[in-house]
């Protein structure tokens, strides 16, 4: 049953490798926006450190949103999605493979880049571990939830803005728990609570999101 999963994962990673330029976009976006913050706000380290957890999380969220729009777009346009919907394999697993590929090429690089940007925003030392752990799980949740919105809007000509309207409310818990884990750690509190909730969010969206996305894709194919 897993061969459809592996085939799609391998193909999506190969495609990502072919279109390297597009893959770098969210990471570059993340980088550029974080560079703009000190210019617009203040170069003062103490004040930057205060807002760094929130800024880093908001930017990671926007970067993820930016990239999730294209998750099913090319597959829809060239007919691959139709072939997937009518293939004898469970759509749930194939959707999950696409989401995993998306996370590997956007969420994971964002997570790895975050400590560097945290340093540029003078994030206190205690914040790095919860930042990376939170983003590691959180970006996966963002990819999973974003896939639902991407599936619902893939057949629409101007889906981009609609996608952000649909997905933003769903993203809120991730932002709240992710940013507060970093903040609490900086303030010297335990971060087990928010990180545990983040893990629960991940488990929950792993169960629900691929089903909802598969349903959304079927609707889009019929439309």
């Amino acid at each position: 049953m897993g061969y459809g999963f592996v085939a799609i994962l391998r193909r999506d990673l190969l495609l990502a490798f072919r279109n390297r330029g597009e893959i770098a976009n969210p990471v570059i976006f993340f980088f550029i926006v974080v560079t703009l913050i000190p210019l617009g706000l203040t170069p003062e380290a103490s004040r930057l450190a205060e807002i760094a957890p929130g800024i880093l999380w908001v930017m990671a969220l926007l970067a993820s949103l930016l990239s999730v729009e294209g998750l099913f777009h090319s597959d829809y346009r060239d007919g691959t999605l139709e072939q997937l919907v009518i293939s004898p394999q469970p759509l749930y697993l194939m959707v999950l493979a696409k989401i995993l590929a998306h996370w590997l090429i956007t969420g994971l690089p964002l997570t790895l880049l975050a400590p560097l940007l945290g340093m540029m925003l003078s994030l206190p030392t205690a914040g790095y571990l919860p930042l990376v752990l939170g983003l590691l799980m959180g970006t996966a949740v963002l990819s999973l939830l974003g896939a639902i919105g991407a599936g619902l809007t893939v057949a629409l000509r101007k889906g981009g803005l609609l996608l952000s309207l649909i997905v933003m409310p769903l993203y809120m818990p991730v932002l709240i728990f992710g940013a507060s884990a970093v903040q609490r750690s900086v303030d010297g509190f335990s971060v087990q609570g928010p990180l545990a909730v983040m893990g629960a969010l991940l488990a929950f969206s792993l169960l629900i999101a691929p089903f909802a996305t598969a349903g959304a894709l079927r609707v889009s194919m019929h439309g």
Partner: peptide
């Protein structure tokens, strides 16, 4: 679906992959 092969107007050919890579993917998933 196991007994079916469907080629529509848009048959799902990836433009940035070569014919071999497209065929390999197809054979894997089927």
């Amino acid at each position: 679906l196991q007994n079916l092969l469907f080629l529509g107007h848009l048959p799902g050919l990836k433009q940035s992959l070569s014919p071999t890579e497209n065929l390999v993917w197809w054979r894997r998933i089927h």
